[in-house]
């Protein structure tokens, strides 16, 4: 699978955990903490499980919940720094 983009992550988050009222996910959210985006650890685990199934990349729950921003999570998944 190609590298996961912020758009991909956005799509997975919304599909797996919905969207919080009053939060705009369409902007530049790379460095906005998940907590501010309204996603808790369960929302991230649910989304990570979907990404694992699509990509085949194994992701540990601990590593996923330690990733506190979209940038950190994308780096974890892609294994490279996000520009």
């Amino acid at each position: 699978m190609a590298q996961l983009t912020l758009d991909d992550l956005r799509r997975v988050l919304i599909a797996c955990a919905g969207e919080n009222d009053g939060v705009d996910l369409t902007g530049d959210i790379l460095d906005v903490p998940f907590e501010e985006l309204g996603y808790d650890s369960l929302a991230l685990m649910e989304s990570a499980a979907a990404i694992e199934r699509e990509s085949g990349i194994p992701l540990s729950d601990d590593a996923v919940t330690d990733a506190d921003t979209p940038r950190a999570l994308l780096e974890l998944i892609n294994g490279v720094a996000v520009a």
Partner: peptide
């Protein structure tokens, strides 16, 4: 309900 609550 808000969409955050629907999957759960």
């Amino acid at each position: 309900l808000p969409s955050r609550l629907l999957p759960q």
